[in-house]
Each structure stands twice: as C-alpha cells, then as structure tokens.
Amino acid sequence: MNLFEIDIQSVFDMASQTILVNDTKRQAIVTTPPLKENEERFIHTLDIVHMGDLVTIDDDKYISLTESVTKRHSKYKAKIRHCNYVIKMPGEVIEDFKRDENGELILDRYGDPIPITIVGESVFIPCIIENKSFSIDGYQLLVADNTIIVIAQDNEVNRVKFTVNNTFSLMDYNWKVRNQDRTKKGLLILTCERV
C-alpha cells in the first residue's frame, strides 16, 4: 500500500460520516454544491456508488444520479438528489382459501372451500417527482400539462409496481404510468399522466 492510500484512509477516518447505500452502512464525506431549487449533494466514498443507488443521510432519502466507474483522487464521487416524495403502493394481493391451524381447508356448509383475499404490506417507494422537466447530465426531458416524471430506483419491485398502465395516488390525484424508461442504468424514469 502506498503512502497516499494511507493518507486518504486517514482523511476518511477523520472527516467521514456514516450513511446508508441501499441499506448498507458506508463511510462518506458529504459535500454540498451551490444552492439550487432541489437539494443535491456530492458523496465521496472509497467504494463505488452506482447510478440509482438509494442513499440515506440523517434519515433523508436520496437517489444517486451519476455513476463513477473510476476513482478521482483515490475516491469515488457521486451526485445525489433528495427524494421529494414517497409513493405508497399497495401490497401484493393473494387469493387463497381459509385454512385451520393445521393447514387444512375450511369448508362452508355446502362443502366448498371459503375464499379469502390476503393483502400484503404496502410498499413505500422514495422517488423524485418533477412536473415541468427533468435533467440528468444535460439530457433534458420536457413534459406536458397534467403529466409528471417519476424517478425511482430501478429494481424488480419498482418495475412491477410501475408497469405501464398501472395507477397510483399522489398529491390528491391518481396517476397512470404511460412510459417506463430504463435507458439510464439503475434509474427507472416514468412518464405518468393524471387520470
């Protein structure tokens, strides 16, 4: 190990704070760029942070909008943006039949199994919501009236919950997913229309 690597580790030991990246503890130095309309920060880490990673700092959720595949001055740097909304999606609905403590079917008076509906726990999805335009590294996406852009982490749960034509409630309105863009690896960018 060279001397500079030891020095960068010492700097991290002194100046870093504990954050969560996808619910895993990491040490990071958090810096704040000039003030903008949205809360953005830079995180400097010794381990890579991918685009779309969900970062938690002091109980606030952020999404990484950039990806660094190479180190800059012996560390990785990523730009994160505050998740301004959390969308509550209904849990998984399972159709089953009523059973006793031994797992045997309970039958009605006609000898038919009694159907039941089991609703799983709701899923809370932190995301960025924009209603005019959204930009990632100069790529500008404009939207029409009664339309929003939802930026969430691209994962299996979110892909299923936000399939095209699914609806969700937000800001006292119902929204229908019209397009699911996954061209930015790690980000799920949705165009949604008010219905």
Rank of each mutant, 00 (worst) to 15 (best):
V49S: 02
P33C: 04
L141S: 14
V69E: 12
E121A: 07
R81Y: 05
K185M: 10
R41Q: 10
V69I: 15
V150P: 10
R159I: 04
D96W: 02
T167M: 05
Y173G: 11
L187F: 02
G103Y: 01
F168Q: 02
D172N: 14
S74K: 10
T117V: 13
L105P: 15
D59R: 07
K71M: 06
D112E: 11
R81V: 12
N158F: 02
K36R: 13
D181H: 05
P115N: 01
E193S: 10
N131Y: 10
H50A: 08
S122Q: 04
L65N: 08
N22I: 02
H50N: 12
S133V: 14
F4W: 08
H50E: 06
M171E: 14
Q27P: 09
I29W: 00
M14V: 09
V119G: 05
S10Q: 10
V157Q: 08
T167R: 04
E37F: 10
V55D: 01
N166H: 12
K98A: 13
T18G: 00
I80P: 03
T183Y: 09
K36A: 13
E40S: 12
L141I: 15
R178L: 15
P34Y: 03
E95M: 07
K79F: 09
Q180W: 01
L65Q: 08
T70A: 07
V157E: 09
I6L: 06
E5Y: 04
R182N: 15
Y110A: 10
D60H: 12
M89D: 06
V49R: 01
E95Q: 11
I6N: 05
D172H: 13
M1H: 11
I129G: 07
T31Y: 00
E121R: 05
V177N: 10
K79D: 13
G120W: 01
D108Y: 07
L141D: 13
K161L: 14
K161A: 11
I125T: 12
R194S: 12
K185E: 13
T70I: 10
I19G: 03
S16Q: 01
N38E: 12
L141W: 14
N2R: 02
N84R: 04
D58T: 04
I116K: 05
V119L: 04
C127I: 04
D112M: 10
Q140L: 15
E40H: 08
K184V: 15
R41E: 03
E39F: 09
I149K: 08
S122R: 01
I136N: 14
P113I: 03
A152S: 11
D154V: 04
I43K: 03
P126W: 00
C83E: 01
S135Y: 07
